[in-house]
Design a protein around this nucleic acid. Structure first.
Lengths: 139, 139
DNA sequence: CTGTGTGCAAACTCTTTGCATAAGT
DNA sequence: ACTTATGCAAAGAGTTTGCACACAG
């Protein structure tokens, strides 16, 4: 079963134009194993090390950027000073929990945006990000 | 006229619970002089120095955070790795121009969000940020 | 074999902090 | 005078880069 997953991941990486190296395969499996995820470089690095894949922090950075360039994941700008990567590249939006700095997918379908302004001349909309910032309710 | 502006700014700072020091007055005037602005610490520092107010970078950081805590300005999370401050604290949204890293106010009133999801138990919505990312149109 | 990827450590950028000096009240 | 702010320089986080070694094709 593990071999099969590796093969799938190899294929996926290859289709994205990336050589399926040990580290890339391992990171991709960690990233895509559990559905949509929002993670920081630090988190993924720790996961990898814990999972027995002693990849370096620099490689995690490089790999995540390569995945991003390949369109496999997306960068989330929810907070200055910390880069979050989103394993779901489709159109959806996010909750951001202040304090715990958690990112959650918004239940999709619910939210709709009406009357998006026309972009300035010569510009087009690349993406619309909606971030719903949450705080713990005063009891 | 300049003296008057200074007085106004002093009053405003005082009402926000901040001592109206030379630097704070000067920075506040730069910030609020031209209506809504979106600026980085680096930009404001440069403006201040150019305007003959030799304030230190650390003080610009401190001051902007104090203004933020006082509710005079807001932090914008449009891009990881660079903090933008918004001099308009009212409810409005933004264009972000990829490449030039410019932030523009969305013409307001146009955009409406429908069916905001209910926050998870014990949470409430602090703020909703919409960022419309623009790219230069292929000609 | 040849070229690309990886690891390490050093460099870099943005931001925060500690402490002595200066300014505000 | 007493208290708070500022400036500087140093430290800190997160991220990127250069180069020797390792691995994939």
């Amino acid at each position: 079963m593990h071999a099969l997953t590796d093969m799938d991941m190899e294929e996926r990486l290859r289709r994205s134009g990336l050589r399926p190296t040990r580290q890339r395969i391992a990171l991709a499996e960690l990233i895509f194993a559990k559905g949509d995820r929002h993670l920081t470089v630090e988190e993924l690095h720790e996961e990898a090390v814990t999972a027995g894949v002693p990849v370096s922090l620099a490689t995690v950075y490089n790999t995540l950027h390569q995945f991003t360039d390949a369109g496999m994941i997306r960068v989330l700008a929810v907070e200055s000073n910390r880069t979050y990567f989103d394993t779901n590249t489709s159109d959806h939006h996010h909750f951001f929990v202040e304090g715990s700095n958690e990112v959650l997918d918004l239940p999709h379908g619910d939210l709709t945006i009406a009357n998006l302004p026309t972009p300035p001349e010569g510009m087009e909309i690349a993406h619309v990000d909606v971030i719903v910032r949450l705080r713990r309710k005063a009891h």
